[in-house]
Design a protein around this nucleic acid. Structure first.
Lengths: 211, 211
DNA sequence: AAAAATCTTGACCGGTTGGTCAGACTGTGG
DNA sequence: CCACAGTCTGACCAACCGGTCAAGATTTTT
């Protein structure tokens, strides 16, 4: 009878290895970029022989594509809080909270995403044109409704969204610069809270919400 | 007597070639990243044989370093408007104008800079620790003075600066995403103005300045 | 005009990279 | 216990990369 004495079974091992590879790949792609990353480096970081990577992911590009899709998924899920809110203060505030949390917990993934978009999105252009486009238009409509209801100042919804993305993602993509300016040490828990508070405070006041 | 019939003279040609190479390198580094860029690609884009690149820039890294330093220079010069202003509305407003202008006119350079910082600043870490650190502390002091004088809301100066950097740079680094969401076409002059206006409006109102 | 200094370039090289593959290994179903 | 499908890996390869170099071309200096 096939019990799992050790975490061994055909399917378990497969999932485990894939996860190991994807995590290593995310870090290496983030630190070196797609062009600078090597399968050997990813293999070393995952603790597997290089040929094993090519068993699970036939090409470097397919591995990269999976990493990008994973972070895009996380990115999209943060949007849920936006929909559940019944007003701009709650909706945008919670969205900033969620995106700052992603920046803190998935800095590598955020960098991979940023790098992909900066390089003209060679592998996820279709996502931008479909999923992201729909998402953006949907939220822009919500914001416009809030404006029409007089619950916030009339600002261009798209530029507001860009500002939300830019500001929150900055704490992931440029964390090295922020660390350097912070005396070479990573932000503490309290400093992350302060950062989130600052961002929320300025933006919410900026769209006419008094807390 | 050495007249310049055609744009030929030793020093002129040198400057011309270096400029040609640096412009090509900026584009290629921006599009492919340091690791993905090849000297051959840069040479082709500059219309020169590869060996010629190595005459002017001994290594790929030295060429890259020059590109990064150039954009850093432009970046720093935008700060002048900050100092000349005698209040937050004028200072921060003009700074946003200047940085949006850079994003528009030097998207490639901005991307190279972003990429460099994202990859933990392997070649310009010393700049971050010295020049950028001093710059940041200087402007933070100015902002704190404005706050003490009651000319703007008490916000953390550093997080305000990060927001300025993030928001303005976003229009360069993520211009492909913005173009896609704009229906696949680049922002028009009017749209750039609208973007700048939106950013200024939200941030200035966000720090308590009523226009 | 000759010599010196600077510039240009095709050909070349050692090292690295993504990817392949034959064969060993291992859990699984009968 | 066996046969089979799935998993693993060392060795290998063609392609490509950054960088070199010698020899020629061009400009500057004497």
């Amino acid at each position: 009878m096939p019990r799992a004495q050790k975490p061994n079974s055909k399917k378990e091992r497969r999932q485990e290895s894939e996860k190991l590879i994807l995590e290593a790949a995310e870090k290496v792609f983030a630190e070196a970029g797609f062009g600078g990353a090597t399968m050997q480096l990813i293999a070393d970081m995952a603790g597997l022989p290089k040929a094993n990577l090519h068993y699970y992911f036939p090409t470097k590009e397919s591995l990269y594509r999976q990493v990008v899709q994973n972070i895009f998924q996380i990115w999209l899920e943060a949007a849920d809080v936006f929909d559940k809110a019944d007003g701009p203060a709650e909706g945008i505030g919670a969205y900033i909270d969620a995106k700052m949390d992603i920046s803190r917990r998935h800095p590598a993934g955020s960098k991979v995403w940023a790098s992909e978009v900066m390089h003209r999105a060679p592998v996820i252009q279709d996502y931008l044109e479909t999923t992201l486009m729909e998402w953006t238009e949907g939220r822009a409509a919500i914001i416009e409704r809030w404006i029409a209801e007089g619950r916030m100042e009339p600002v261009d919804p798209r530029h507001l969204l860009y500002m939300l993305w830019a500001t929150t993602q900055h704490y992931a993509d440029f964390n090295h610069q922020i660390e350097t300016l912070n005396g070479g040490t990573p932000l503490s828990d309290a400093q992350w809270d302060a950062a989130t508070q600052s961002v929320k405070e300025i933006i919410l006041r900026g769209i006419g919400i008094t807390t």
